[in-house]
Amino acid sequence: MTIFDFSTVFGEFSRPFQHIPYSESYRDYTNGGQWVKGAELPPVNMEGVILPLGNDDLQFDTAGTYTIQDRKLFLQEPETLEEEAVVEVDGLRYRVTGDKPYGHYAGFNVYFLKRTDIGGETS
């Protein structure tokens, strides 16, 4: 049970985005131990509140330095994302670089999104 109810905020401001999952990377020992990067899997449609970063967020944080191209994603539980997950918003890709869990008292988590190129590498 959460202490604060933000369902009306999510109902009004949520917008669609896609989580781009990747298969597991592995070492192919049949080819001399060559590293095989995970392949992109079909996207998963999700919804959340996506905002630009504020001035406080643009400073150094535990996940690194952010720019005005980066975003903040508010995602209602039970939906979650792992660190390094790739999401696509309006045709632009972002990598999850960190989170702030507010789940036990507010029912959502905040994820910091770093702008990336098409392959998911940080730009």
Rank of each mutant, 00 (worst) to 15 (best):
V87P: 08
W35G: 01
T8Y: 01
N45F: 03
G107Q: 09
F13R: 13
F4Q: 14
D90V: 02
E88S: 05
V86R: 02
H19M: 10
G11K: 14
L92N: 07
Y105R: 12
R93A: 00
V96R: 03
G98S: 06
T97V: 13
Q59M: 05
K37V: 09
P52K: 06
I3F: 11
N55I: 02
E77D: 14
R93E: 01
V9D: 12
D61V: 11
D5T: 05
Y102K: 00
Q69D: 10
E79A: 15
Y29H: 11
E47N: 14
P101R: 13
E83F: 00
L51H: 10
A39D: 09
K100Y: 09
D28P: 10
D28K: 05
P78S: 07
Y102E: 01
A63D: 11
D70G: 07
A106P: 04
D61F: 11
G120V: 11
F108T: 00
T67Y: 09
P42E: 09
L73D: 03
Y105G: 12
G98I: 01
T65W: 15
I50T: 03
G64Y: 04
E88G: 01
R27I: 10
M46S: 06
L81P: 08
R71S: 01
I68V: 12
E77G: 14
Y22K: 06
H19F: 12
V87H: 05
R95N: 01
N55W: 05
E82Y: 03
T80G: 01
F112N: 11
F17L: 09
G33W: 11
E79L: 11
V9Y: 14
F13L: 15
S14H: 06
T97S: 11
F112Q: 06
L92E: 06
N55V: 07
G33P: 05
I3V: 12
F4N: 15
